[in-house]
Computed example of a mutant assay.
Amino acid sequence: MNIHWMPEGTVYGTLLNFQREHARWAPRMSEAPYKAPPQAPVLYIKTANTFTPAGHSIALPAGKPVAVAAALGLVMGDTGVAGAVLFNDVAIVHESYYRPPVKFQCVDGFLGVGSECVPLQRLGGLDGLTGLQLELRINGVHRQTTALAELVRDAVTLLANVNEFMTLRCGDVLMLGSDCLPDGSRPLVHAGDTVEISATGFKPAVHRFEPEVIA
């Protein structure tokens, strides 16, 4: 029996942590309601109902555009980061990305989880993550490369900044963020598509998207 790794705690996502997307949003960061750029990491939560194991299907709500994004998550252990996992962070496309509503981020099944937590020492520690590139393919066609060298806050800095205002407990996951395409969007998926996210040292995270079945 093949048992895939699954999160045991809370999964946190990070917004605006890639240089290209941060630059695109910078002119709007001083608008209402915030009127200033964020000083701390901007986080959101992926709730337990969103977790979809590798190799399983994700249901797409009818009539709503859905985007996918490659992300790397840091898995907390008893004494710090224990390992890292690939994720497919799925969301309904929405205007208010800077303030992401739960109803667009936390739809049932909307976090594709990689099949394994790779021990941090095998990846060269937190500093070793900087050289990783995440590849996203839809139906076998390359759609995006996400380079962790282009993070605004690298893994060490993001973790330290988050720990300044909250405690990450054993089993929690902190995703480093996801990047946008050059036009500011993220790749869209449709019913029947298969999305594969891969990186050196990891087994690919593969999920198929199916139309939602309404009883």
Rank of each mutant, 00 (worst) to 15 (best):
V141Q: 14
P53K: 06
G125D: 07
P53E: 09
Y97H: 09
S57F: 07
L60V: 07
Q133A: 14
D108M: 09
G128R: 03
S115F: 01
K46D: 05
A67Y: 00
A54P: 01
V85G: 02
H94E: 11
E116Y: 01
L111H: 02
L126H: 04
L129I: 08
F87A: 14
M76P: 00
H94G: 12
Y44D: 10
F110V: 02
H56F: 11
P41D: 07
L126S: 07
V85Y: 01
R137W: 02
G114D: 08
P41T: 06
K64R: 15
L72H: 01
V141W: 04
A71L: 09
L123K: 00
V66L: 09
F51D: 10
L134Q: 00
F51P: 04
S115V: 08
I58E: 07
C106Y: 04
G128A: 09
Y97T: 05
M76E: 03
I138F: 04
L136M: 13
L111Y: 02
A69Y: 00
V118Q: 05
N49A: 15
P38E: 03
G140P: 01
V90Y: 02
L111P: 00
H142W: 08
P101S: 11
N88W: 04
P65G: 09
G73M: 05
L43V: 06
T47C: 12
V75T: 06
Y97I: 12
K46Y: 06
S96L: 13
A82E: 15
A67D: 11
R137F: 03
L134P: 00
T52Q: 11
L43M: 10
D89R: 03
K103F: 14
G109S: 10
Q39L: 15
M76R: 00
P100Y: 02
E95Q: 14
L72G: 02
L132M: 12
M76D: 04
A54C: 15
G140H: 03
P100A: 03
I138G: 05
L136V: 12
L123F: 00
I45K: 13
A71P: 00
E135K: 06
G140N: 05
S115E: 12
L134E: 00
F51Q: 12
V102R: 13
V81S: 04
G131M: 08
C117K: 01
G140C: 06
L129E: 08
A59V: 02
A70T: 06
A84Y: 00
T47L: 14
V113W: 01
A84N: 00
G114T: 06
P119M: 10
V113D: 09
L126E: 05
I45A: 13
L136W: 02
D108I: 05
G128M: 07
T79K: 15
F110D: 03
T52L: 12
I58R: 07
S96F: 14
G63W: 04
D108C: 08
F87K: 06
P41L: 11
G83V: 04
S115C: 13
P61W: 01
G128L: 07
L132D: 05
V81L: 08
G131S: 10
A84M: 01
G109H: 07
G140I: 04
G114Q: 06
H94V: 08
V90T: 14
Q133E: 15
A69G: 15
R143Y: 01
A40H: 13
L74W: 01
I138C: 12
L72N: 02
P41M: 11
S96M: 13
L86P: 00
D78K: 15
